[in-house]
Design a binder for these strands. Structure first.
Lengths: 109, 109
DNA sequence: TCTTTATATCGCAATATTACGATAATAGAA
DNA sequence: TTCTATTATCGTAATATTGCGATATAAAGA
């Protein structure tokens, strides 16, 4: 096996898991944090910032983009990347909701 | 290659990435959501709830536990699992912070 | 046009994840 | 003690991820 049984879970569960998976690598967290700091930048800026080769950064950007976390706009011969606020907000709301629901309950085990 | 270059990133980045990675699978999201709903339960309850075999559930629980997202307490011959509120709060705060910082900036690309 | 710059994609090797049958380990019941 | 219930671990096959050199692609400049 090895393939995730995504079909057995809800769309929302798969969607949240996809976003979390995209953030499940320190390089991609570093990319997100850099984008928060500089607002927007091109791929080359991130290559200069992180200790990874250009194809590797490009691949990480692709995964963040596929998960919807960032947007890329072609500007001349470079690509301007920035965070998709809506998607980050969705994650924020998700964990906020869980936190609030946990507050109302007793501590268990 | 294939090994993540975790040593090049900060402890915080690695920590957030680890938590996100643990949530990066729909089965583990489903387990978290079930635990939020029932507050606490034993492994067998989750096995009855999800379309996965017992060893697979046990393995997912192990990963959630290693990431600090859940706690397990031995109760007789079963184990009581529940969510670690503090860790979920840390994730909540992380995304809240990013959301707030993004609000103050212009939309880019 | 030819060259440079900026990204993306291909292909591959190393490693990690996913899923589960078989089996071990442990506690409680008979 | 023997049986049952509950969970963890081992072993393994299928698949996915990570990282990067080589190369392709596309736009801008000389």
């Amino acid at each position: 096996m090895g393939a995730t049984k995504a079909a057995f879970f809800t769309d929302k569960q798969n969607s949240i898991a996809n976003m979390a998976k995209a953030l499940g690598h320190p390089a991609r967290i570093a990319i997100i944090e850099y984008l928060v700091k500089v607002n927007a930048c091109i791929c080359g800026d991130i290559v200069n910032e992180l200790p990874l080769a250009q194809p590797t950064i490009s691949q990480h950007l692709k995964e963040l983009k596929q998960a919807g976390l960032i947007k890329g706009t072609i500007e001349g011969n470079s690509v301007c990347y920035c965070i998709d606020e809506k998607v980050v907000d969705r994650l924020h709301e998700y964990f906020k909701n869980i936190s609030q629901r946990l507050e109302k309950k007793n501590n268990c085990c």
